[in-house]
């Protein structure tokens, strides 16, 4: 394969500028702008039909943008398509495969498409790492769903791409495989590969990604580091475990919206840390003599951020959303 020269920083790994895509009268993407520095593990989130796959397909060349620019290490994805496709590896969302061939033949053919013939050692390593070695002579029809998913990952990595795009890589796989794919993503990322991950599993994004973009109705409703986004959700869930049963919720706590469990041994409430509720809670606890044995405060997760941002009307999200919202 002809080596594609990668320009020095500050040229980002991926740059999407004001990209729109219309499918007839439907506007799938509406002026998306995104810059992913090299070496980042970026999470692209959004509900079904939000525009995630359209954006990924524009980057990989499967879909033509209506307007805007998309560059991979400074190369335009349409004008310099050979360079950008050599630098990209993509795991598609659907389990697509060529049923005529075995696992090994599939990887040989995929290597050839990228101009590679002397990568047998790397193919061998991929087969081992993705636990496909013992299935290498099976046709794709003979593989389980999980194996097919792993083969798709191997295909995407066969040319050692500088950017690996994983579109819902763990959809429909069991917990063990999910963990092993996470480990693989971490390893690949640790070796310097830029990773773009789309997923419906928000714990996956929370676990793996450094920065997250949440897309809804074709626009980014959030684009920031995941910790920053989670900080912007003000609610905290407070759980108090009681050593003895209480018959009635104290008035002070009831006025804060607390609820008592049926067994009378647990009090829970949501506290908005921005409006002084937390202080009122501490004061109320000081006045009451509750038999407290445990006290937990749970911060917001990415799921809370996602739900808050995608539940509201998309066009108004930017004006009412947290700081860091990108349009």
């Amino acid at each position: 394969m002809k080596t594609i020269p990668i320009p020095d920083p500050p040229v980002p790994a991926l740059e999407v500028r004001s990209v729109s895509k219309n499918y007839g009268a439907v506007r799938a993407l509406d002026g998306i702008t995104l810059s992913i520095p090299r070496g980042e593990l970026f999470g692209l989130l959004g509900p079904n039909g939000a525009g995630k796959s359209t954006l990924i397909n524009i980057i990989t060349g499967l879909v033509r943008r209506t307007s805007g620019d998309v560059k991979v290490f400074g190369y335009d994805v349409e004008r310099d398509y050979r360079a950008t496709r050599s630098l990209l590896g993509a795991v598609p969302q659907e389990l697509i495969y060529d049923h005529f061939f075995t696992v090994r033949q599939t990887l040989k053919i995929q290597s050839g498409y990228y101009g590679l013939t002397g990568n047998a050692a790397w193919v061998e390593e991929l087969l081992e790492r993705l636990e496909l070695k013992e299935h290498e002579n099976k046709t794709i029809r003979e593989l389980s769903g999980g194996m097919k998913r792993r083969l798709l990952v191997a295909k995407a990595m066969v040319h050692r791409p500088a950017i690996l795009i994983l579109d819902e890589p763990t959809a429909g796989v069991d917990v063990a495989l999910r963990r092993s794919l996470w480990n693989l993503v971490r390893q690949v990322h640790a070796q310097g590969t830029t990773v773009v991950l789309t997923t419906h599993y928000l714990d996956e994004a929370e676990e793996l990604c450094e920065r997250v973009g949440i897309i809804n109705h074709g626009v980014f409703v959030a684009l920031d580091r995941k910790e920053t986004l989670m900080q912007q959700i003000h609610n905290r869930r407070v759980t108090m475990e009681l050593g003895a049963r209480v018959e009635r919720l104290p008035e002070d706590l009831a006025s804060l919206g607390a609820t008592l469990s049926e067994d009378g041994r647990r009090i829970t409430l949501l506290v908005d840390r921005s409006d002084g509720s937390l202080q009122s809670l501490v004061a109320a606890l000081g006045r009451e003599s509750l038999p407290l044995v445990d006290f937990q405060v749970a911060g917001a997760g990415l799921e809370d951020v996602f739900l808050e941002l995608t539940a509201e009307p998309s066009r108004g999200a930017g004006s009412r959303g947290p700081a860091g919202v990108a349009r």
């Binding site: 990989t60 060349g61 499967l62 398509y81 050979r82 360079a83 496709r85 050599s86 990209l88 993509a90 598609p92 659907e94 697509i96 495969y97 060529d98 049923h99 053919i109 995929q110 498409y113 990228y114 101009g115 295909k155």
Partner: peptide
């Protein structure tokens, strides 16, 4: 068949002229 099964993307995403 490639279009029907979806594996046409292997060609379309590869750096082939």
């Amino acid at each position: 068949i490639s279009k029907f099964e979806g594996n046409i993307v292997d060609i379309l995403m590869a750096p082939i002229g």
